[in-house]
Design a binder for these strands. Sequence first.
RNA 1: GCGCCCGUAGCUCAGUGGACAGAGCGUCUGACUUCGGAUCAGAUGGUCGGGGGUUCGAAUCCCUCCGGGCGCGCCA
Length: 551
Amino acid sequence: MRELIAGAIARAMGSGALPTIGDDDRPEIEVSHAANPEHGDVTTNLALRLARPLRRSPIDIATAIADELGEIGPHVSDDRLASVEVAPPGFINMRLGDGYLERSLDAARALGASYGQLAAHRVRHIDIEFVSANPTGPLTVGNARGAFVGDLLSRLLEAAGNEVTREYYFNDTNRQVSLLGSSIAARRAGKPVPEDGYHGAYVADLANEMPEEVWEAASREDEERDTSLGRWAATRIRAGIEASLRELGVRFDVWKTEGSLYAEGWVERAIQRLRSGGHLFEQDGALWFCSTAFGDDKDRVVIRANGTPTYFAADIGYVAEKFSRGFDELIYVWGADHHGTVARNRNAAEAMGFDREAVQMLLYAWVHFVRDGADASMSKRAGEFISLDELLAEVGTDAARWYFASRATTTGIDFDIEAAKDQSAANPVHYVRYAHARISSILRKASEAGLSPHSSVAGTLAGDDISKRLCLAVLRLPEVVEDAASARETHGVTSYATELATTFHAYYRDRRVLDAADRETSARRLALVDATRQTIANTLGLLGISAPQSM
RNA sequence: GCGCCCGUAGCUCAGUGGACAGAGCGUCUGACUUCGGAUCAGAUGGUCGGGGGUUCGAAUCCCUCCGGGCGCGCCA
């Protein structure tokens, strides 16, 4: 729909009614749905944006374009545009033809579950790495946002026509693992857990669950005991993490371990690649990456003076490994506290010859969890945290998904768990789900009365603004997906879902769908309502939220 | 101190150059002997943190100040 108008305007511009200008000065043609019905169905501010480069008044330009659109018969040659108006200070407002809207709606309905799934001009392969929490404790609410944001973004980019790989990175070789081991050993032996160790109840549970033979075997290893125990525990914890994520509705395609990057030589080769490019230097016995050459404020150590590689070394190898799999873009979903590491990673990628623009970090702001008005700690170290499982059990996956989907990732948010539970009945997510259930109920009733949806809504829109409004709302989904994918934010999808549900409820009030005495009208209205139901289901599906038949 | 993010209605948040700044929740009024009242209609409510500047036009861009979060390791 948007393409149609944009194309018509482009042709109007090309017909000579306006001075021609270079492509560089030509603003992108944006056509959007009018928020105010008085402004037509779709509107564009193109004339306002052209005023400067053309050095003519917005009204004059708008009038010229509108005249072209009004006489564009040969190009449009049908009923797609019903009217074109110019409104101060230079907006071009258009109304779409009923026939065109009806055909569009029939087409959307025919697509069924795939309506809203866009076909990309070129399929891009995108890798999205998220969560990647160390296997030193269960996932907490602190990991929740990353999990939701990563999953939602994955779904969104897939809907926009990309091929997405979901990836989880485990640190299995670091000090944290041995610290976990020593914490468990202390618990097992009935000694106090080290100050900097892990104090959560799960550590005690693991210590108790640990089979005697594991404990004895590890105890014989002396120096390696902690690491050995830590590995055992990490495996157990990892299984729990995977289970939590499944519960949340997230599936990962790739589980990558830090150890494998070394075992397969990726780190070594990446370092060699940087070395041959002249991007490494030695100082104070350590090996450094010259990150400042690419704009970073400091150079970064890759190999410590003691010969051990840093976390960053693995990151470098990982980037090369990811690109070797043929991705067009790598997205990292990180907490905002990682923003200091963004530059070095992109710099290293560039230094190795990759396109730094293909390495994108999406940083999400912290969530402040509150329970009963009090601060809820989520530190694993402190041993007091709300686990992701608890959150899902209390609030529900649908509500939690909606909560995170409806807020911009860069915005710090407060999450009062008790309030979220209390408000569940008034939660917008249930409002939208209710609309779906209500339509499902109507369809059931129709079926019982021997009525079924017509194959087309043709003839239902003429002179009926109520129906037309619902039709327009249904038809907006593709551009909602496009805009959201382009912005890489999902809150546009949740607001659309709410608007669609609201529009339906208003329709429901004003138009009786089922009328045994008028089977033809009933069938047409059932078609419109069924398209609405499908669109609500698809929109919720995009967010991983259930669309129930009844509730 | 330096860097990044944020400050919009009582609350939670949209709006990142355009038409009177929007939504949900909250509060207050109303609406069913008809398809699900978990609904609908209306009302209430904002110096867009303060102050300068750029622009025909600024919540949006620039500068500055105030307030909050995060980061500035040979930790991960």
